[in-house]
């Protein structure tokens, strides 16, 4: 068991290494000389040269990379060009909002997709199945930002039920308030995943229902409900863990645009605004953090899967 986890972990390391190179190059290739952001009008060329040296910018590029990597590993992400605050602080204060939104939408997708997928499998080729399938197609085809705008129009502007932007109402500090702000963005983020999960669960349920153990249960006189909840459900839930891992890129990518549409103060919104203001240190940190989130998500899914499925554990 430990061996499996270790192996997956070691696999992730070269990936992280390559991504760190990409993030570093993004800053290096950025238009403009980085020294310019430190130069003030009263500095003479000697001062500028000394500054270049003290920042390590006179070193060859691989040395610069090593220095940079050292800084990153000790948690020093530099300072934002715009706000002049440490980038790490800016990132850390945004993480709860993003993780909260992702967690909520993941939970929502599972709560809807699991029963829906199983029901459509049992009622294969009925009207209900067709309608659910049609909605699944809409889910993977709808542009998330447009869905968000439409929800804002209906629920915020027309019905006035839910707030359309931000995470908190000024002056109130309650969980309920945050939840109310989160309903629309979480729904937008969940819609695509619901479709993907539902189709997956449907097809794996259909496969399970054909298995011998199900037939044997029926032969013993077990009720349909008993077979479905006590036997099929367990086997269907196993692969769902992998599919959650596979959908993490969707969540991370979707967070950028969904947070922007709803002004949700998370990492995604920070990323998009930093691109518009060319705030390189922040851009780089966001690239690293979102990649790490993606890789960690896949790693956790992999490990969980080997924990719950003994066949993989034994194979090592």
């Amino acid at each position: 068991m430990k061996k499996v986890i270790l192996k997956r972990f070691l696999n992730a390391i070269p990936l992280l290494f390559i991504i760190s190179i990409i993030a570093f190059l993004l800053i290096k290739l950025a238009p403009g000389d980085p020294i310019q952001s430190f130069v003030t009008p009263d500095m003479n060329p000697d001062d500028v040269e000394r500054m270049r040296k003290s920042l390590g910018l006179d070193q060859p590029i691989y040395m610069q990379y090593i220095l940079w990597l050292q800084n990153i590993l000790t948690g020093n992400f530099g300072y934002s060009i715009i706000t002049k605050r440490p980038v790490l602080d800016m990132i850390i204060e945004r993480i709860p909002a993003t993780l909260g939104l992702m967690g909520a939408s993941l939970l929502l997708s599972l709560i809807i997709a699991i029963p829906l997928g199983m029901i459509t499998a049992v009622k294969k080729n009925t009207i209900f199945d067709r309608i659910a399938n049609f909605f699944a197609y809409i889910g993977i085809s709808i542009p998330g930002f447009w869905f968000g705008l439409m929800l804002i129009y209906v629920f915020s502007l027309q019905l006035g039920l839910l707030p359309s932007m931000g995470m908190r109402t000024v002056g109130t500090d309650s969980i309920w308030d945050v939840m109310k702000h989160g309903i629309l963005p979480a729904t937008v983020l969940a819609f695509q995943n619901i479709s993907v999960y539902m189709r997956y669960i449907r097809s794996s349920t259909i496969r399970q229902l054909d298995e011998d153990y199900v037939q044997i249960q029926y032969a013993y006189g077990a009720s349909k409900r008993h077979v479905l909840f006590n036997h099929v459900l367990r086997n269907v839930l196993l692969p769902v863990i992998t599919i959650i891992g596979l959908s993490i890129p969707n969540l991370v990518g979707g967070a950028f645009i969904t947070e922007t549409v709803f002004s949700w103060p998370g990492l995604g919104l920070l990323g998009v605004t930093s691109i518009f203001s060319f705030d390189y240190p922040v851009i780089m940190a966001i690239t690293l953090f979102s990649s790490v989130m993606l890789i960690l998500g896949n790693l956790i899914a992999d490990i969980l899967y080997s924990v719950v499925d003994p066949r993989i554990r034994l194979r090592g």
Partner: peptide, 19 residues
């Protein structure tokens, strides 16, 4: 291919478009 699939491509696309 694996590396490209595990980076947040949407963010990079935004970034490159801006660059």
């Amino acid at each position: 291919v694996e590396v490209l699939m595990s980076i947040p491509s949407f963010f990079l696309m935004l970034l490159l478009n801006a660059y």
